[in-house]
Design a protein around this nucleic acid. Sequence first.
DNA 1: TCTATATTTCGATAACAATAGAAATGTGGA
DNA 2: TCCACATTTCTATTGTTATCGAAATATAGA
Lengths: 124, 124
Amino acid sequence: MALAALAQETRLSVYRLLVEAGPEGVSVGRIGKALKVPGATLSFHLKELARASLISSRQEKQFIYYAADFERMADLMIFLTQNCCQGMPEKCLTVVETALGKCCSAPAKSRKPKRIRSRSQKRF
Amino acid sequence: MALAALAQETRLSVYRLLVEAGPEGVSVGRIGKALKVPGATLSFHLKELARASLISSRQEKQFIYYAADFERMADLMIFLTQNCCQGMPEKCLTVVETALGKCCSAPAKSRKPKRIRSRSQKRF
DNA sequence: TCTATATTTCGATAACAATAGAAATGTGGA
DNA sequence: TCCACATTTCTATTGTTATCGAAATATAGA
C-alpha cells in the first residue's frame, strides 16, 4: 500500500517535496502551485498518501498542512531490506551502509544540498 | 518504475523471495511453485521486475534463474532518503540508522531468521 | 451574516495493469 | 531427430486507477 502510493509520479513528487520540507509540512495550495497540479487531482493523491500513512495533516487557520511521516519512511526501508542478510550478511551490509552513507553522512559539510540526481526521472 | 514494479503483491512477493534467496537466484519454475502463480502470470511479472532492473536473469541448462539486484536495492533506498536531512539532520539520521540496525546489526546471532513481521500484509 | 479563499467530494471519462488459457518457442537429453 | 519439459508470447477479458471540471463544504475575517 505504501509502495503503491509512491508508485505514481505525481504522488512521488508530492512525497519527496514533503520529505525535503521537513516536519512543519506544506499547505495544499503551496504543494499544488509548486508542482502545478489541479486541486481535485492533488486532493485525490494526498488522500492516497495519507491512507498509506506516509503523510499526515494538520489544520492551521484556513490552511491544511501535510507533512511526511519519517518513522513510516524508516519502516518502509526496514521492510525492503528485511532478511536480506540471510546467507550473505556482508553483501547486505555493504548495500545498506552505502545507502546510509550517501543519505546522511557528513550532513553539515555544505549549506547547499548537493542534488545527486535530478528530481524527476522514471527510474524510481 | 522500480516502485511501480514493487507496488504489486505478486511482484513484491517474488522480489522478497529473491532477496531472501540471495545472489544465486531461483528458477522460474521454483518461484511459481513457491508462490503458486501460473506460468504466464509469473512471466509477466518477472519481465516487469527485470524492466525495472530490480532483478536479473541467467540461463543455466534448461532453467532460467532470476536473482535480486542488490545494488539497485541500495539505489532505491538512497533515492527514498535523499535530501531528507535538509533542516533536520538528526531526525533523518535516527530514521536511517534505525533501518540499518534492524536489518543488519548482529546478523550472526541465530541461525533461524527471526521473522519480524509476517510476510503478506498490505502495509507496504 | 456575507464574502473570499482553501480544500474536498462527485461524477464521468480515459488510460492502464493484471489475469490466465492456449499456442509458440527454446533447450537438453535420448 | 524427436520428445519432454521450461518458459514466453499472444489474446481477450476484467478490474483498477488517474484525471479534472463543476459543485459542495469549510474557515477566517470584515
